[in-house]
Design a binder for these strands. Structure first.
Lengths: 249, 249
DNA sequence: TTGATTCCATGATGTAGATCAATTAATTAC
DNA sequence: GTAATTAATTGATCTACATCATGGAATCAA
């Protein structure tokens, strides 16, 4: 098809699955909840974390695994999903550098509720959740920032509940593309490129639809000039028009 | 219809909209995040809270209002909802005594994302969000408990996203009734009474369906002996069978 | 360069549940 | 006790989108 072309999504970047110890201290200081701590504090915190690399597609942990570790994304993108009995996934969130996932506190009876999977090559910083709790005990200002971030996440999840409950498929897809553009977008040829590989199947998993519906809707948006896309990529070309679709319920 | 009868949901209880100052210190100590603090700490915290009563149906705050205050439910039940352009509501959560809502931290640009409304007569404890943040600064062990509760809330919201994305209406309704039974249920005639007034319309708002679909499904469940219900009430009578429906996707 | 694989697009058909409508029953007000 | 109102139930019809199927194009492997 005419509009399809080679993906402009940049999938090079550092080979994240070989993330460097040198980066760890630098990245820890850049995590929003440790930002502003003293060098001494970061040095101490640093000793508890390890960096772990994952190849694109690799599962970090499965839903149902005992929840023992806290993670922060240092580089790359991580997706959180749940699995339906039908074999279909529900894609709950895509996490970018600085965001966290996993277990916040040690609770023996808890399992991970979602599967975490590397969407791209990923470097993650990881710590045992008991040690993370100790870290928050030692640095309560960090705990308060994590609390704020968690409140933001709850709000985003509730917005998703609202979308799924009250919008039709086209509206949900437009709304989700806008959110992805806000979170992962970079300027590109006058529009906003959603800067991660995103298949029609994944878009469907995020919007409570099927691959065919996502593909039809994306094709219609392309035909109308709202977006441009191809294999595993989408760029928003008419932001205002896409917003109109998202708000038209 | 035969199974319908006068609601067994107890709507008496204290006239919550006239909640007593005497109760405040007692209730503060029972909030999960202040539980365990010393009497002296509770005395100090107590000075910052006010108790506020709301009649059933009264709106505590509207979505879009500037977010200035943190609330905890002392007595009664509060519902959080968002409003679609169609006029329909999406019912995001029903909060019980000990649960919190509102603004966790003072952020000038923030509005309340949801409307909070008294489902029953409600007594709430309220504090300015800047003062609440100061309280968490002073008592970081409380912040960590709030963090855990927030993580639980995020997990519940994600489960709701999963339900809405991957289940059909009957399954979602069964699943939601089970959750309501867990959270708000009390033993009643060998079953579990969902102990709050709950209309078919509200059940529909919680499950992404319409009133007619909720009513049809509830009638089918009654016909099969899974539940018993009437005007604004539902009791689960066959827990195992309802679980089977919820898990049958 | 060619063949295999994966992803996307499009068409046809079926259905879950929304929409619209009317009726019944419970509750409230007088 | 009666009338009005509210909530729930049930029926008929319509539609958004899932399901099933097929073909095309991009990408990868040999």
């Amino acid at each position: 098809m005419k509009a399809r072309r080679k993906s402009p999504v940049d999938q090079t970047g550092i080979e994240s699955q070989f993330c460097s110890i040198d980066l760890r201290l630098k990245i820890l200081g850049e995590l929003p909840f440790f930002h502003g701590l003293s060098s001494q504090a970061l040095e101490e915190i640093n000793r508890h974390f390890v960096e772990v690399g994952y190849a694109a597609g690799e599962v970090i942990y499965h839903a149902g695994d005992p929840a023992r570790r806290f993670y922060a994304v240092a580089d790359g993108k991580v997706k959180l999903l749940q699995h339906a009995l039908s074999g279909r996934n529900v894609l709950l969130d895509i996490l970018i550098p600085g965001e966290f996932f996993g277990s916040l506190s040690p609770r023996d009876a808890m399992d991970y509720p979602d599967t975490a999977q590397a969407q791209t090559p990923v470097c993650a910083l990881s710590i045992n959740s008991a040690e993370f709790r100790t870290t928050l005990d030692r640095y309560p200002e960090a705990a308060l920032i994590v609390l704020d971030l968690m409140a933001n996440r709850l709000q985003a999840a509730n917005e998703n509940v609202f979308r799924l409950s009250s919008m039709e498929a086209e509206q949900r897809i437009a709304s989700t593309l806008l959110k992805l553009g806000e979170k992962l977008g970079r300027s590109h040829e006058g529009g906003i490129l959603i800067d991660l590989p995103l298949s029609r199947d994944e878009l469907a998993e995020m919007t409570g639809t099927t691959t065919e519906t996502a593909s039809r809707t994306v094709s219609q948006f392309q035909a109308k000039g709202l977006i441009q896309g191809g294999r595993q990529w989408i760029a928003i070309t008419d932001l205002d028009a896409l917003k109109s679709v998202a708000q038209s319920g």
